[in-house]
């Protein structure tokens, strides 16, 4: 089943074209990893998908509904699209538990007890249930990021966007976050992931999309083959930057 469809997406900042005629279709349960050099437009692409950026051309649909930044309905659509940021962006004045249940109870008007119960179950899964009454500043980066993932999950999104979620973390914390994401992928979540962790990309991806200078340069479901022998020169050159002789 097609969940997310992007056709002829065009995005520019002033005179600068950031994304040029991007086409993509994502099935339910698929894990798509987007890689590419810094400034290639991959993060901007994710931000377009939940209407945090206005687009200058093309159509984005989630379960058949168009995503249009600035429209009134956008808040309804965003509930179907979870997003996890590089800098976690927990709300500093709320505890872990309050962070997690705020949107479900205030936006979706769900029962507080039921939301709390689910939050605690999920926190338990990521090993943070004992931190539920802590404030974000009392947590490590990896813990904050796992809380941010739980917060996104509690909205029951149909697709989750991960924007370089481990880029700000110490190496040993990267692992705990990636483990959480692999568990999600195994449980059948639909995920779009922007990352610089190539080993992780190889392990989790159903499909790799390589973006350079605003274009999709290479797209493949043969993930193993991509990391051994990419088809395009540009992808080859990019992957080489991760290898040390």
């Amino acid at each position: 089943m097609e969940l997310l469809k992007v056709t002829h997406l065009h995005k520019e900042f002033g005179q600068n074209t950031v994304l040029n005629d991007i086409n993509l279709s994502v099935e339910k349960g698929e894990v798509v990893v987007i890689i590419g050099p810094s400034g290639c437009g991959k993060s901007t692409f994710l931000r377009c998908l939940n209407g945090l950026e206005e687009i200058q051309g093309g159509v984005i649909t989630i379960s058949g509904l168009p995503v249009e930044a600035g429209k009134r309905d956008i808040t309804k659509l965003r509930q179907k699209i979870g997003m996890v940021f590089q800098s976690y962006e927990l709300f500093p004045h709320k505890t872990v538990l309050e962070n997690i249940i705020l949107a479900p109870t205030k936006v979706q008007k769900r029962d507080k007890e039921e939301a709390t119960k689910e939050a605690i179950e999920l926190l338990d899964k990521v090993g943070l249930v004992d931190k539920k009454d802590y404030y974000p500043r009392q947590l490590s980066g990896g813990q904050k990021q796992r809380v941010a993932i739980v917060r996104a999950l509690l909205m029951h999104p149909e697709v989750i966007l991960f924007d370089e979620v481990t880029a700000a973390l110490d190496p040993e914390m990267v692992h705990e976050v990636l483990e959480t994401m692999i568990a999600l992928a195994k449980a059948g979540s639909t995920m779009l992931i922007v990352t610089h962790e190539m080993a992780f990309a190889k392990a989790i991806a159903d499909r790799i999309i390589f973006i350079d200078k605003g274009d999709i340069v290479e797209e493949t479901r043969d993930v193993k083959e991509f990391f051994i022998e990419p088809k395009t020169e540009r992808a080859k050159k990019f992957l080489k930057t991760f290898a040390y002789e």
Partner: peptide, 13 residues
């Protein structure tokens, strides 16, 4: 600004 964005991404108006 990203605090606003993180709230909006959760569906807050």
């Amino acid at each position: 600004v990203i605090q606003f964005e993180s709230a909006m991404a959760l569906g807050f108006n």
